[in-house]
Amino acid sequence: MIETDQLTRCYGHLTAVDALSIRVEPGQVLGLLGPNGAGKSTAMRMIAGFLIPTSGTARVCGYDVAREPLKAKRALGYLPEGAPSYGEMTVREFLQFIVRMRGLKADAAYRRFDEVVQRLQLEDVLGLCIDTLSKGLRRRVGLAQAILHDPPVLMLDEPTDGLDPNQKHAVRQLIDTMARERTILISTHLLEEVHALCNRVVIIARGKLLADATPAELEQRSRYHGAVSFSAPGSGMSQEMLGRLPQVASIEVDPLDGRITVFPKVGERILEPVERLLREQGLEVSEIQLERGRLDEVFRQITTQETDGARDAVAGVNA
């Protein structure tokens, strides 16, 4: 379990993390989302015990990071931003160093070592210097380091940054299999990752918590939620007809590929009536889609609102 209570961190007069209170339970995969510079990494560094908060507390598995740092650190597997590791060491040396630092017992450590190496497909590079590895491989070495002691709490700062789609998939599968009894906190700015991994999303910007919801709930906030889109050549006529449907709020046409998106009025379902109308009109529709909502749009909406507000505040002060 991870708990933060009014966690705050200032750099000079800049507040990087502003009274952040979150609680992640076992079985949850929480995605910490936010634009660059939102305070994601700073928050994680405080939870990991690397930075000392200006005020507020962080607890890992019930251990206060400030009061019982060693117990908290033992319960935590942490992948810092950029997956730093000692470049002059080989992968094997580096992971053995972590085994020693974690104080793992010999035979259990060997079994775990082999298991982790196999899971992250590092067998072929064990003897290579970390400096010579590709970005993706280095990230996997960092992940191996984080899960080597099989921690109950896992905190990963941008775990799939720099990986190719196949590697991303493999890492997501790994996190998925680990998710069941563990508490996992990942930070990311990839919205697809939220879909693939998280059952809860926290959006922060300028250090403040702006939203705390499931991915599905966030999607519902999108104006695209429940909209119907289709491509049909020569459908100029039917657009007018669609507009007359009582459930429809508005219609948009993509200027590039002519794809039509029909937005429903609040609380209305429009897939069926739209389909019926198209059939009645005898229009050939190659494909029709019910939209779930667009996270990127919701993300932009939530995070830019906040920054606009801040800009207004600054302008007010200057005036």
């Binding site: 740092p69 060693l70 810092p80 730093p84 590791s85």
Partner: peptide
């Protein structure tokens, strides 16, 4: 400089 300080200090040691 290399960021490994963060790694080292988040391992369980004083």
């Amino acid at each position: 400089k290399g960021g490994t300080l963060e790694l080292l200090l988040t391992l369980p040691l004083t």
